[in-house]
Design a protein around this nucleic acid. Structure first.
Length: 273
DNA sequence: AGATTCGCCTGAGAGC
DNA sequence: TGCTCTCAGGCGAATC
């Protein structure tokens, strides 16, 4: 399930293959994704455009084009973006295939269709699309004093607060549990009760965990593969996620599983206070 | 207004 | 074997 590290890995993998390439032809499925496929905008702004950059914003993969338009993918839960031979057959759940000028095709496949494909026109502000999103975890703005301020008055568990993309982007269910374990803070603590010193730990560990996950090629729990179709390996380094009942790697006590706001949450009751 | 739940969606796995 | 049920969760809408 793609969070920030997985999307980052995909974007980095795509860049060298797409940069300088012209998108020649687009094939779309008839199925509806979370948002309708922007057929007209794809035809108008993406076909015959040259890719100049591929970058990530939050959990979006943004492909910048030479005409100023941007092709934006969200992987949702099961979305995959990868490169294939344009001549090869489409497979089940392929929703968008962009044939390039070198015989390759960029394909978006999404079993559960929680993902999306969007086009930002050259004259449109990207911020319209990303309005309301909080800072990137690696941005200077995401700091202890910022978190402290945003958490003021919020009774919500700190784990759900971290997953709120108006506060900070890119942190989903898996990494929220991992970050709080590394920071030694219980996920059930109300956000407003977390101290400045503890926020400093959260910010530091958020960056450290996400960075290690990117270096490991992301986490493959069930679906994730990079742009070349290869899985990531960070799931082997997960310390609490999916480890209910197994020993804590610090104290040896059993890892607890609790449902917070409908999401499975894993932590060590002894090491996380 | 803040916090939670629901709905979207498919496939894997469990249980009968 | 094959059916039904549960679970997985990003994220916006609905609801409490």
């Amino acid at each position: 399930m793609p969070e920030l590290p997985e999307v980052e890995v995909v974007c980095r993998g795509l860049l060298p293959h797409l940069k300088g390439r012209t998108i020649k032809k687009i094939k779309l499925s008839s199925q509806k994704l979370r948002l309708p496929l922007p057929r007209k905008l794809l035809q108008r702004w993406v076909v015959e455009a040259v890719v100049v950059a591929v970058r990530r914003r939050a959990k979006f993969c943004v492909i910048e084009l030479d005409n100023g338009a941007r092709l934006v993918f969200h992987l949702g839960m099961t979305g995959r973006l990868g490169l294939f031979q344009a001549a090869s057959a489409l497979i089940k759940h392929d929703h968008c295939s962009c044939a390039m000028d070198n015989g390759m095709a960029l394909r978006f496949n999404d079993v559960r269709r929680f993902g999306s494909v969007q086009v930002v026109s050259p004259d449109a502000e990207e911020e319209d699309l990303f309005a309301g999103l909080g800072p990137e975890p690696f941005a200077r703005e995401f700091a202890a004093d910022y978190a402290m301020k945003r958490a003021a008055g919020r009774q919500q568990p700190v784990k759900n607060f971290l997953m709120d993309n108006r506060v900070v982007v890119g942190i989903g269910n898996i990494y929220a549990s991992e970050i709080l374990f590394e920071a030694g803070i219980s996920p059930v603590r109300p956000a407003r009760e977390v101290s400045m010193g503890e926020w400093e730990q959260v910010v530091r560990q958020a960056r450290a965990v996400l960075k290690r996950a990117i270096q490991a090629g992301g986490s493959t729990i069930s679906d994730f593969v990079n742009s070349s179709g290869q899985p990531g390996y960070f799931q082997l380094q997960l310390k609490v996620y999916g480890r209910a009942g197994q020993p804590c790697m610090i104290c040896g006590g059993a890892i607890t599983k609790e449902v917070l706001a409908g999401r499975a949450t894993f932590f060590c009751e002894h090491c996380q206070q």
